[in-house]
Design a protein around this nucleic acid. Structure first.
Lengths: 240, 240
DNA sequence: ATATCATACTTGTTTAAACAAGTCAAGCTT
DNA sequence: AAGCTTGACTTGTTTAAACAAGTATGATAT
């Protein structure tokens, strides 16, 4: 539930763009028009528009207007965009999802783990390995580490349903920032053991560090995807 | 050269964070302090901070301050971040770069090309294939299409040096938005012919559509990278 | 000693206003 | 007819102010 005005305007415009009420290359109503429509100040409208622009939905043209550059994508693959859980992604991509926990232990970060993950040496962690099924096929291998101090009392049951649900709705942990790297790698024996690889000998890999609202990195994840089901999407804006 | 105040503040803070003048997990000076330091309004400071936050450099903590979450990365691979040319990337990654044009023709978008690239059917295009060398090794295969109406008089010579240079400094075309998809794919015969693949049979692929300041998509590019030299980086922020 | 409260910080949201600067078309001048 | 000017739009930058809300600390009351 969005609470602030600019979020409401943002959401509403976004929805209208996605439903093609405003078409590709069309100009949105001018800022002054929106100001009247939403009974708010121009700054508030501009804030909503600025967020849409970051999403790659619109682009401002100085002196002309705000142009829609959103185009619906064909959904052959499992598309990854902002910060969302596996469940949310699966739902948005209209797949039937399923999760199996194959490893669940405690762990204390040593020098090697610290260097690789960014956790401080000596941090107490949960270590989880999960296989993700889409439409019955084992396509994704997730390796997570969670900081115990932020995510206490994690269980296999929670890991099997949705950790993000637990984080946000039970613990009240807010996920704010996620730093990610996308690479491609050869498959490992672990991949071969648990995934339906078909004839693939490589995977698309997302490595991410996640921060909560206190600015503490509490999660390190490596997500290994079969490439034919993987597509990472991004919009960049030039900063002069 | 940044002209506006918020850009100057943004650049300066960014530089200070990168040079570790402000350390990881440290709090920046408060908004009011920065307001005094830079002799500007609080809004202007906030705009600079907001941009840094989008870059994954800082995170705001309500009631506490703005925390630095930037960490320098180890540069083993060729890291791709915002919008920049191959040359800029190569320079930032401290590699010696080189380019060979292997194909340079005209092209008119038919239905198939239109569907794949997003150019309107009948668009007049330049079609360019280039091999990119880093430290003498053929690691990247670039396939570009440019809209002739936006990028007129393109030549092989320009393609061999820097098309982005030509765009920005000669034509005055401003690159604003770039939509990208990252995937992994099997190598094609073309890849095998031109790239130093070692024993790799797959590549990391970035497919991107680029928009100019008029909101017109004028470039479609597919950039095929040998995976051991490729890393795509991104920071996402949760939108409630 | 512990709990509570006041308060002085911090960031978050919103408004109103002014001026700069790019776009575009109508109308005027040449 | 061609070129120029004007004016009414558009978005871009910046300021100032007010209030909301989260955080931390020290003083106070129990």
């Amino acid at each position: 539930m969005p609470k602030s005005k600019f979020e409401i305007i943002y959401k509403e415009l976004k929805q209208k763009i996605e439903s093609l009420e405003y078409d590709y290359q069309e100009l949105l109503p001018s800022e002054n028009t929106l100001t009247v429509q939403y009974q708010c100040s121009r700054n508030t409208v501009r804030r909503a528009l600025s967020n849409l622009s970051e999403d790659g939905y619109v682009q401002s043209l100085h002196g002309k207007g705000v142009r829609v550059i959103y185009q619906p994508i064909e959904q052959a693959t499992f598309t990854i965009g902002g910060i969302e859980s596996f469940r949310e992604s699966a739902l948005r991509n209209q797949k039937v999802s399923n999760t199996k926990v194959i490893q669940f232990t405690d762990l204390i970060a040593d020098a090697r783990i610290s260097a690789r993950t960014g956790f401080a040496i000596g941090s107490e962690l949960y270590y989880v390995q999960r296989v993700r099924y889409l439409d019955g096929k084992a396509l994704i291998l997730d390796i997570n580490m969670f900081l115990k101090s932020v995510v206490p009392a994690l269980t296999i049951e929670i890991a099997e349903s949705s950790i993000y649900d637990y984080l946000e709705n039970t613990l009240g942990v807010q996920i704010i920032t996620s730093k990610r790297k996308v690479t491609a790698e050869h498959t490992s024996p672990l991949d071969e053991k648990y995934l339906d690889l078909k004839d693939y000998n490589f995977l698309s890999v997302i490595t991410s560090q996640t921060y909560n609202s206190k600015g503490v990195m509490f999660e390190f994840t490596q997500s290994r995807h079969r490439p034919d089901y993987f597509c990472f999407q991004d919009t960049a804006t030039r900063k002069r």
